[in-house]
Design a protein around this nucleic acid. Structure first.
Lengths: 337, 337
DNA sequence: CTGAAAGCGCTTACAG
DNA sequence: CTGAAAGCGCTTACAG
């Protein structure tokens, strides 16, 4: 393994000079510089990140904490975050926390983060109160995506507006019997997104002078399977909604499946609107409320990196909200009279 | 930041003793041990991974290289890999290489891996020849998943058998006019999976005494959108296939979309079989050939970690092939006469 | 502009 | 069983 000393020897300079020319470009004689660069490239020298970290106190590694990867949102944003980190010469250390948070024991340990990463991107993973304590004691720069934790700076969409855009589209088409799939089941009740979207749904109905049938506001764990299972019963029989707003496109796909099994045609018998603009949305012709996930990823990393590089004194923006956009495709239409 | 010296002082021992009791448990007097543990816990001591790495020469970090996260297979396997690494006290450094490989310039740089990770899990990312060179010179323990690179140990399914299972199911149902979606478009031509599945498709038809219509073997980039776009033309008009085998469930979902637009009912007018058992497959009632992705992830990490821990002398298994299983749901049925 | 040296926080022979 | 010391490969004041 070639080290900085090898380069120094070959270039006939001290290791300090090698270090300087390879970094700060601080005042190095052009000819010395040339020799060092030459030697480094001949030896195919790569500095040890580990030694650099120990000496500098910076790891240039960011932890990205996600609750799962199997959901489109998380996979997409992880991609965006990893790429924008790498552009800035940082690396992404991934941690997937699939278990649910429970009071009384922590899925988190200080060793996962302490002295290992310079900062954390937190992707909508709900925390128990003791886990929140632990994270606070770590005192690492952190940014949340999707939902805030305490006072932590957060990048997110306006969940209420997104949901309202969906309902209002259905109302405008003339629907009066609308169901909502996607308030939270017990296990994910800590997450704010389901509640925000559900509340907005109810509000929009009330403002339109319509009753809110709570039996048409369906709790799920936000998977396609669960959405299908929950929605099927209320889609049976004549007293059924003419439209469904799903809080995510993945759940909307579950509704597509349920409708198919029941022989309901979309949009003739049932209108359907999702939220996300999932990769499959276009192929399936799904009307949806689009969110720009890569933009959220980029915003999160730039927020975090500037907090890291400027030190904790510059208080970073506390909240960045990105817009959403209704995309009308084939799954929404006026109710058949 | 509390260091090993702080712990040593508080416990009244040397740092060497602290190090020993915290690791090898090698011969430490029980009472000394107790004092050290006590001191460490009182101080909430966490060893610096960076210093440990520098001193030990091991980082306990594994690079996971993926071509994209937006595909179900990659998101699923990444989850499995990250979790099994963490169980063994390793960490996953993620790198997403979305660009296509091109001769003449490398997306890879030695700094991404050298002295930074102890090994690499390579997820079906095609390499240009110079990139392959670079990886070889790095001489890091490596394992491939999904498709092999040169002689690198690989965990994968038998792609030919998986595809055959799909075709043979359709043949058994009585189909004679079967199309295949999922040979490779130019940009992913380096990947072996599309070719293997396509070849197996052709073989199965030939063995059944059927002609292979090459205009029904469709190149795509393996997205739902592309599959939909490619399949639509051949689904139009009376001279159309009665069944489609898609090389992935994601492409099968694209076919569902295309069929919907054309007013074709599944399975009455068109049978459809995918490969994967994607999260959405059950909700959509998709008949598919299931692969166990978490098992592949676990196999890959255990292969890699044992190569790392036993040193390069023990040549690891060169290939692990996991089985697949046909799952019949609602999208496949005998052709309507 | 450059070098000698201390220091980052560990691990690991080497003595005892 | 335990300690003193060297060493891992860098960075960064401090002199010059």
């Amino acid at each position: 393994m070639t080290t900085i000393a090898d380069v120094a020897k070959r270039a006939g300079v001290s290791v300090a000079t090698v270090s300087r020319t390879l970094h700060h470009s601080a005042k190095v004689d052009p000819r010395t510089r040339e020799r060092v660069l030459q030697a480094a490239s001949e030896l195919e020298y790569v500095a040890s990140p580990t030694a650099t970290s120990l000496a500098s106190g910076r790891t240039r590694v960011i932890a990205v904490v996600a609750p799962m990867m199997s959901r489109w949102f998380f996979a997409s944003i992880l991609t965006a975050i990893e790429q924008s980190l790498r552009e800035d010469d940082y690396h992404a250390l991934l941690m997937v926390l699939e278990d649910q948070p429970t009071e009384g024991h922590s899925r988190l340990a200080p060793e996962m983060f302490a002295k290992r990463v310079d900062g954390i991107v937190w992707l909508n993973v709900p925390l128990s109160s003791q886990e929140e304590d632990l994270m606070r004691r770590l005192a690492l720069p952190m940014v949340c995506v999707g939902a805030p934790i305490g006072e932590t700076p957060t990048v997110m969409i306006d969940d209420r507006r997104a949901a309202r855009a969906g309902v209002e589209h259905l109302l405008a088409l003339g629907h009066r019997r609308i169901a909502f799939v996607g308030t939270a089941v017990e296990s994910i009740a800590h997450m704010s997104t389901p509640a925000a979207r559900g509340d907005a749904f109810r509000e929009a109905l009330i403002e339109a002078g319509l009753p809110v049938r709570e039996d048409w506001v369906l709790d799920t764990d936000w998977t396609a399977d669960a959405a299908a299972a929950m929605v099927e019963p209320i889609l049976r029989g004549p007293d059924r909604p003419t439209a469904v707003l799903a809080a995510s496109d993945e759940m909307a796909i579950g509704v597509v499946g349920a409708a198919r099994r029941l022989g309901l045609r979309i949009p003739e018998d049932l209108s359907l609107v999702g939220i996300d603009d999932h990769t499959f949305a276009a192929a399936l012709g799904l009307t949806t409320v689009r969110q720009d996930v890569p933009a959220q990823g980029r915003a999160a990393t730039s927020l975090l990196l500037s907090a890291i590089e400027q030190g904790a004194d510059h208080p970073p923006a506390t909240r960045i909200e990105l817009g959403t956009e209704l995309i009308v495709r084939d799954t929404s239409a006026p109710p058949s009279s």
